[in-house]
Computed example of a mutant assay.
Amino acid sequence: MDEHGLKIDPWQFTEGRRLGPQGTIRFPVKPDGVELEFTQGAFSIPVVHSRVVQLFERMGIQDVQFIPAHVNGHSGPWFILNSLRVIHCIDEPRCREVQHFMPEDGQPEKVGQYRVVSGMRINPTKAGDAHIFRPWGWTMALIVSEDLKQALEREPITGTRFTEV
C-alpha cells in the first residue's frame, strides 16, 4: 500500500524499469515472524534492510533502485529492491520443464509466454556482466551474479537463499 493506504500495482516491481517517486510504501506483516534483512513479499517483491543497500553501494552496483518502505511492526530502514534489468536468458533445453501458454488455454493475450519454468537454467553468456536481474518471461525470479552472492554471504545478510541456475 502507498503511504495513504491505497493499494499499488505490485507488478511494477518486476518490469525492470525505474519508477517515479511513490512515497513510502507500507507492507503489512501477517503473521509476524523473525525479522530478515532480505525477504520477498507478495508478488516476489524483494524487501531489504539498509545493510543490503549499503552493500550494493560499496560494490558499485547500479542496476537497482531502492524505494523506501515501511514494514509494519519492524524498525528499519527498509527498501524495495527494484531490479532495473530484465534479460532474455532462459536456456529452455536445459530447464527441467518449460511450458508455454497455448491457444487452448483460453488466454489469447498470453499465447507463447511462459506458463511453467521448473528447474530453471540460464545461458550465462546472455547475462553478461549483470550483477542482478530478472529473467525475461519469468520475472518472479531474481538472479544474482556469483560475486554478489558471495558478498551477501560474507556480510552475512539474513534471509538470502540461493539456487544455482
Score class of each variant (00 low, 15 high):
94 R>F: 08
85 R>S: 06
80 I>N: 01
73 G>E: 11
76 G>Q: 08
65 Q>D: 02
88 H>C: 11
73 G>T: 10
94 R>M: 13
86 V>A: 07
87 I>M: 09
97 E>N: 13
91 D>Q: 10
93 P>W: 03
99 Q>G: 05
78 W>M: 01
77 P>R: 13
95 C>Q: 02
76 G>F: 09
58 R>Q: 15
62 Q>D: 11
99 Q>N: 09
72 N>A: 15
64 V>T: 15
74 H>T: 15
81 L>H: 11
72 N>D: 15
99 Q>H: 13
85 R>K: 14
58 R>Y: 10
57 E>R: 12
79 F>S: 08
70 H>M: 07
73 G>P: 10
79 F>P: 02
91 D>L: 07
80 I>S: 01
89 C>W: 08
70 H>I: 00
60 G>M: 04
59 M>A: 13
86 V>Q: 09
97 E>F: 12
81 L>P: 09
58 R>N: 14
71 V>N: 09
77 P>Q: 12
80 I>Q: 01
59 M>S: 03
68 P>L: 02
81 L>G: 02
68 P>C: 10
77 P>A: 14
99 Q>S: 11
80 I>Y: 06
62 Q>E: 13
91 D>C: 07
57 E>Y: 03
66 F>T: 00
58 R>T: 13
68 P>V: 11
88 H>T: 08
92 E>D: 05
66 F>Y: 05
93 P>S: 08
72 N>L: 15
60 G>Y: 07
75 S>I: 06
94 R>W: 09
83 S>P: 15
66 F>L: 01
64 V>Q: 12
74 H>Q: 15
79 F>M: 02
86 V>T: 14
67 I>V: 12
91 D>P: 05
58 R>V: 12
81 L>E: 01
67 I>T: 05
70 H>A: 11
93 P>N: 04
62 Q>F: 00
80 I>C: 03
91 D>W: 10
98 V>Q: 04
100 H>W: 08
92 E>G: 00
75 S>C: 08
62 Q>W: 03
63 D>K: 01
87 I>L: 15
76 G>D: 10
87 I>K: 10
99 Q>K: 14
96 R>N: 11
57 E>T: 04
85 R>L: 12
97 E>L: 15
61 I>L: 05
78 W>K: 02
88 H>W: 09
79 F>N: 02
96 R>I: 13
57 E>H: 06
92 E>C: 00
57 E>V: 03
78 W>G: 00
92 E>F: 00
77 P>M: 11
88 H>L: 11
64 V>C: 15
61 I>Q: 03
96 R>C: 12
60 G>S: 07
82 N>S: 11
74 H>Y: 15
98 V>C: 05
73 G>W: 04
100 H>Y: 13
82 N>K: 06
90 I>N: 08
100 H>G: 05
73 G>F: 06
58 R>W: 13
72 N>C: 14
94 R>L: 14
79 F>H: 11
